[in-house]
């Protein structure tokens, strides 16, 4: 079976700074990939290039056997790529339920036609909120949420688009241990439903527990890719994290 996501030799520069330098990554269908790297190593830039927020200068991104280059972010979302943002970016003027309504209206409808009646839409929003444990707050505004709830909303909104691949960009930063467990369990459940997941994270215990495979980015280059236990013992990786 061909890979779901195929990132081939992509490069991204910001002026003279090379943020990504010939990065190659493949992700198989149903896989759980962990992506780690020190701050500023290009993880978020990679996500932005995969999702279309930024356009890579060389190389290409293939997703589900389609070349994505030149496509805007919303077109990629329509084709089944979804992401959560590192810092949650909810729609501030809308209730939680309406926040989830947006991907349903604009992505799920665009993909499969407006099959849903307004009642179905409301039910689906509720289901999604139920999944992340936010159902009782359906009619509240994002400003009423705690940090962990905000992250859950962010994930629920990405999942609402019914993606094939979900990229979770540091969904756990700054959370307590039990909250990390919460989010991890949620991601595992989503993976069991058949969603391929790329997890970008600094919390190593979570990454190790979650990932079937681990890739490491340092200064815009991929320096390791393989079984998590092997990768963390890789001398180059150790050097990048701990220094000489």
């Amino acid at each position: 079976m061909s890979a779901l996501l195929h990132v081939d030799n992509i490069t991204k520069r910001f002026g003279g700074f090379v943020a990504l330098d010939g990065v190659e990554i493949e992700v198989a269908r149903g896989e759980r990939l962990g992506l780690i790297g020190p701050n500023g190593s290009g993880k978020s830039t990679l996500v932005n290039c995969i999702c279309g927020t930024l356009q890579n200068e060389t190389g290409n991104v293939r997703f589900d056997s389609q070349v994505m280059d030149g496509m805007s972010a919303h077109q990629r979302t329509h084709r089944g790529l979804a992401r959560s943002f590192q810092l949650p970016r909810p729609f501030h003027s809308m209730t939680l339920a309406d926040n989830l309504r947006i991907p349903l209206l604009y992505t799920v409808h665009a993909r499969s036609g407006p099959l849903r009646s307004p009642g179905d839409l409301t039910d689906r929003c509720h289901e999604l909120l139920e999944m992340v444990g936010l159902a009782p707050k359906a009619n509240q505004m994002p400003r009423d949420l705690t940090q962990v709830e905000m992250r859950k909303l962010e994930l629920a909104r990405a999942v609402a688009a019914e993606p094939k691949l979900l990229i979770a960009d540091e969904s756990m930063a700054g959370l307590s241990n039990s909250e990390v467990e919460d989010i991890l369990a949620l991601l595992m459940r989503l993976n069991e439903r058949g969603i391929t997941i790329i997890l970008i994270e600094h919390i190593m215990s979570a990454v190790m527990k979650f990932s079937q495979r681990l890739a490491v980015l340092v200064s815009g280059k991929k320096i390791a890719d393989g079984r998590p236990e092997d990768v963390v013992r890789n001398p180059e990786v150790v050097r990048a994290y701990l220094g000489e």
């Binding site: 999702c51 279309g52 927020t53 805007s72 972010a73 919303h74 979302t77 329509h78 979804a82 992401r83 943002f85 970016r89 909810p90 729609f91 501030h92 003027s93 809308m94 947006i102 991907p103 604009y106 992505t107 665009a110 909104r157 990405a158 609402a160 688009a161």
Partner: peptide, 13 residues
């Protein structure tokens, strides 16, 4: 109005 980047990510053209 709220967030164009998040809107694109949700599939809004």
């Amino acid at each position: 109005r709220d967030d164009e980047l998040a809107a694109e990510a949700c599939g809004v053209p």
